[in-house]
Design a binder for these strands. Structure first.
Lengths: 244, 244
DNA sequence: TGATGTATGTTAGTAACCTCACTCAAATCG
DNA sequence: CGATTTGAGTGAGGTTACTAACATACATCA
């Protein structure tokens, strides 16, 4: 009889993994595994969020919308984070739209359970608040990046974030989708991608981008990539130091 | 004998005013009044913050810096907010630089006192977390604004935020300083200001901008102004409903 | 009063991105 | 298979903002 296929574990989420074991056991029963497909919508802007989502193998994009209907990504949330943490800050509505960027799994927890556990003012609360701090940094850095850096650099950043999440050098996404996340025109992505291809950093085809050498992308990306990554590592290390 | 000149009160800060009276009395003795001049630095990026600042008549700008030394404003904090709330999220360092944009007063509270009070998991905690939620919205909206809107619109937004803070149609600030807050070149501000002047929305002179009719600026500003303002009003109203 | 900063105005050239209007190629489906 | 849909590439023309270099005006102070 073959060994059972290792099931996806909520501990693959780095925030949950950073909780002291006792605390994790306490909330574990509230966690429900959900499988997502790219393009799925966790919630629309201004909707009431019923759950928090702790991604393990999926990657979530938070999109902030304008009145004109145009939207742009303000944060990417992978296994180092949680989507919907705003509810614990005392809010009922979610200001941003959350969509799935990569197929995969997340563990969700009812906001009622979340609030209850949060109110205990223990490790769970500290974890969510620490994450919120890192999220603030991510969004701030994104704001600066929008102001100062080129779409080409931002595409590189997007590629690296996706690569970090699922060590895979083939990216299945249309240029139109990338444009939506970056908040620019599809044509602009097309042009920038052509430039990157000319420099042999990527190879594009219909609905797909391939990266032959990921370190060449790392050399072309703006600092924002590293700043955000370091911030999450810092927060998580902080917990390990405290609890591990 | 004339009535004593009304002293500046910590309750002029809308967050503090939104606290239940009992709670406010509890922290009131920890509050210390500080007078600021435009240009004062509350803290540099990566510095350890020793205090939280609740502005009453001053206006604070949070500037996010890049490795290249260029910085851009990510949030403006007036009497509806508090500067440095990140420390309660579990952080010791402040990722952003905080400078004073308008002369005035703020009440400060030691981070040690803040943490102590925050740990009580009461109204004080809820207030700070609710504010953090609004701050997230403000920064997100700023990110979108950087991507989608013109410097001309952003100057209008800057003028309105300052006007809301101190109902005054004369703004004492050099174009270079405005450029620093917006994260653009001084020349760009100069050009945009000239355009606004041509449309009779403003009147510029050395280190000064005058606005003859503030509602004309309101007609020219991007939606981001209203979105952020509404969000703060919503948060504060939330408290009044709960406690008032 | 003249000298020295400092704030603003202005210009020319360039780069990035946008808009609009297409063409072309790949995938899908009847 | 051919028709349709979907994703990508392209090109003209415009706008916004950047870079760099300079001119002008105001403010202060010796």
């Amino acid at each position: 009889m073959p060994a059972p296929k290792p099931t996806n574990s909520a501990l693959d989420n780095r925030l949950l993994a950073a909780l002291p074991n006792k605390e994790f056991q306490k909330i574990n029963s509230s966690l429900e595994e959900i499988v997502f497909k790219s393009g799925d919508v966790l919630w629309e802007a201004d909707e009431k969020a019923l759950h928090l989502y702790f991604p393990t193998t999926t990657l979530i994009s938070m999109l902030h919308e304008t009145e004109g209907g145009i939207s742009a990504g303000i944060a990417a949330i992978g296994r180092e984070g949680v989507a919907g943490a705003g509810v614990v800050l005392g809010d009922v509505r979610t200001p941003d739209r959350a969509i799935v960027q990569q197929d995969g799994t997340a563990f969700r927890m009812k906001t009622t359970d979340v609030k209850e556990e949060f109110a205990e003012c223990g490790d769970f609360q500290h974890m969510l608040m620490g994450y919120t701090q890192a999220l603030l940094t991510q969004i701030s850095q994104n704001a600066i990046c929008n102001r100062l850096h080129t779409v080409e650099q931002q595409i590189c950043r997007w590629l690296l974030v996706n690569y970090d999440h699922k060590k895979n050098t083939t990216f299945l996404m249309t240029q139109d989708q990338i444009a939506g996340v970056l908040g620019v025109r599809r044509e602009t992505v097309s042009l920038a991608a052509a430039q990157l291809q000319k420099r042999h950093l990527i190879k594009t085809s219909r609905g797909k981008i391939e990266v032959p050498k990921i370190d060449r992308i790392q050399a072309a990306v703006c600092e924002c990539y590293g700043v955000i990554k370091d911030e999450y590592n810092r927060i998580l290390k902080n917990y390990v130091t405290k609890h591990g």
